[in-house]
Design a protein around this nucleic acid. Sequence first.
RNA 1: GGGCGCGUAGCUCAAUGGCAGAGCAGUAGCCUUUUAAGCUAUUGGUUGAGAGUUCGAUCCUCUCCGCGCUCACCA
Length: 508
Amino acid sequence: MDWNELEKIRLAKVEAMRSEDIEPYPTRSEVDQTIKTAIIAFEDFEKQSEPSINAPQAILAGRIRSKRVMGKLAFCHIEDSSGRLQLMLRVNEIGQGGLKEFDERFDLGDFIQAGGSLMRSRTGEITLLVSEYKMLAKAITPLPAAKDEIVDGKVVHHATLSDPETRYRQRYADLAVNDEARNIFRTRTAIIRALQRFLDKHDFIEVETPILQPIYGGAAARPFSTFHNQLHQELFLRISFELYLKRLLVGGFDRVYEIGRDFRNEGVSFKHNPEFTQLEFYMAYADYEKIMGLTEQMLATVCDEVLGKRTFIFDGQEINMDIPWRRVELRQGILEATGVDIYAYPDAEALYQAMQKAGLNPKEGQPRGKLIDSLIGDFLEPNCIQPTFLYDYPRDISPLAKNKPGNPQIVERFEGFVGGMELCNAFTELNDPLEQEKRFAEMGRTYDADDEENHPMDEDYLQAMSFGMPPSGGFGMGIDRLTMLLTGNRSIREVILFPYLRDIESEE
RNA sequence: GGGCGCGUAGCUCAAUGGCAGAGCAGUAGCCUUUUAAGCUAUUGGUUGAGAGUUCGAUCCUCUCCGCGCUCACCA
């Protein structure tokens, strides 16, 4: 490794410690509690009507985040994942040598273990008066944070790491230094737990299905492909879980869900990561109406449990997740927004002409479904700031959804929009194997033969359907998007620990 | 992939076609209740990479790399 000047100075400190038989990376620590438990213990001690003479003792460990040495006395703050605490080191307890050692060998970013008794400093801050300490792990590279200040209990950063590229590439440094970043991922975990609790409570079971698949499907997207060396077989990374989860409905699991990673070989942007996390669930004997209700309930519950309230701010707007959501029939929504009645134009050419007449600048050569998709994206989605369901979709873009009785052109499908973003997608599942086979074939005709979004015919899936699948409702939702909403982030990179970034060309 | 913008010390940022600066961090001191500690002194740069214009380029031009925003594709 190439070390810079600051790092060489710290390496010299490591050498100096080793030369005195002090291990800068000891194998074990004698920590006996977290910072949080120590603070609580001290507060309890103070509350006693007749305080015992001896203040609570603690051996704590954490990363040094600030350091103030003044002659015969030093303060520093250490941080573990439970919180932050001030240490006070005095020659009275640790001697001249002990303080000098701390001053000369310990830097911001180092992990330290400190034992002593808890007290309050003159300014009233709970502080560990240190009687013994040791290095737990020396940091060679300085953390990028300059300094933090605590104002009214809130940490204020001064010139901290803010360059987005460095924050994503060196997420460890970002997390070590930026509390807000850590909180985003705590929230993300809390969201997933809340979803699992909700679904578990509703008698769903969580399952795992293959990520490597011989045939991809369940969504319109280009896959990543890979190769099994020994089997000499091309495999795809899944683009959805749908087809496998529905096989489980055939198998007799009436309520299943999976939370996991999907992979789509598409453009990368602040909205799109090549791998992203989805929740899909399938519920036997439910239809899309029932799923709509469950969706409202589920997301309201997640808000309650994660945020403690139903409202949050996203992109400057307060969003209210109370039940019920606004419901807009797709045809009606498009008619009101653009004046185009999609039911009046049953094929791509007619719809294209109508859109052109309405001055909407449609793209040429698109199948009808894609044209309708673009109407949704351009004219409906941006206006769905408050939670909204669009429902009843054209069958062209929904090959796995069931027809609405009495209207063969429409399927029972809805999408949920929040904050101007598509959040979820659900439908009454098509369970007629013959109809499904027809739909797969239709897709093959609709798209060019070389269109990678073409749904490959999945014979085994049809085989499964032919055993009989109960009438069911299915649901899919982007966890990253939900996290973006609930943490108020417009960029997906803020809510993925290690977002995809281009390789930096090595300078060899 | 297209368009626009950005890239300067470890971090956050200045600056100028003429010797590249500040705060914090670092280093050496002083300092026994600080918390952006303070005071004194001080180190630190291939200005993203490469080429061009120029007496002289960090600045102007071009190419490349990366990031951000945006459009396209999608979730």
